[in-house]
Simulated assay, not measured.
Amino acid sequence: MATYPKHIPVTPPDIDALPDSALLRLPSIIALVQCSRSSWFAWVRAGHAPQPVRIGPKAVAWKAGEVRAFMRGRSRGDAPAYTVTGGKAGRAKQLAAKAAEAAKADEALA
C-alpha cells in the first residue's frame, strides 16, 4: 500500500502574470507571502491583509490584484512583518494595535 505525504507542497503562481480578478486559495497565498496560516488570518482580521471573497458555502479565495498590492506594501514595510505562532489571537490583536499606533505616528510625522 502506497503512502502519500501529509502536505503536498504548493508551487506559488506567478502573481504578476495573473489578472487582478484571478482568485487565489489559501495554499497559494501562504506560498506567495511565505507566512503561516494563522499569521495570514490574523492580518486579515486586523485589516492589514485583503478580505476574502466567498466562493462557496465553505470556501473563500482572495483577488490576485489585492494580494499583489499587499505584497508590494509589505516589501515597502507598510504591512506587518510579525508572525503569529500557535494561533494566539490575543497576541495578534496586541501586535495589530501596536502596528496601528506606529502607523498613526508615521502619519503625524508626515
Rank of each mutant, 00 (worst) to 15 (best):
G77T: 07
K6H: 04
I15S: 02
P27N: 11
G86L: 08
A99S: 11
S38K: 13
R72G: 14
A99E: 11
K88H: 07
V44R: 00
A96V: 01
P9Y: 05
G73M: 02
S36I: 06
A100P: 00
A42L: 03
M71Q: 14
W43E: 02
D106A: 13
G90Y: 04
L109W: 00
I8N: 05
W40P: 02
P19R: 12
K93R: 15
A64V: 05
S36P: 02
P5N: 07
R72S: 13
F70G: 08
R37C: 01
P50H: 14
I30L: 15
I29K: 00
E101H: 09
P12R: 08
P13T: 07
S38P: 04
S75P: 06
A22V: 01
S28M: 15
T3C: 08
G90T: 09
S39A: 11
L95S: 12
A103E: 04
A49W: 07
K58P: 02
A105M: 05
A108R: 15
A59V: 15
R76A: 14
R68C: 06
P50I: 15
T83Q: 01
I30P: 01
A99I: 06
K88F: 09
W43V: 05
R37Y: 11
A49I: 08
G87K: 14
E101T: 08
A46S: 03
Q34V: 12
S38I: 11
K88C: 01
E66G: 05
P57W: 13
A31T: 08
M71H: 09
A69G: 00
A2P: 12
V33L: 06
S39P: 00
G87R: 09
A61T: 04
K93L: 14
A2C: 03
A31S: 12
P13Q: 06
A2V: 14
E101D: 11
A105C: 13
D16A: 10
G90Q: 14
V44N: 08
R25S: 03
V84Q: 14
T11G: 04
Y82D: 04
A110V: 13
Q94R: 13
K58Q: 12
I55D: 03
P80K: 11
A108C: 10
P19W: 04
D14G: 00
D20F: 07
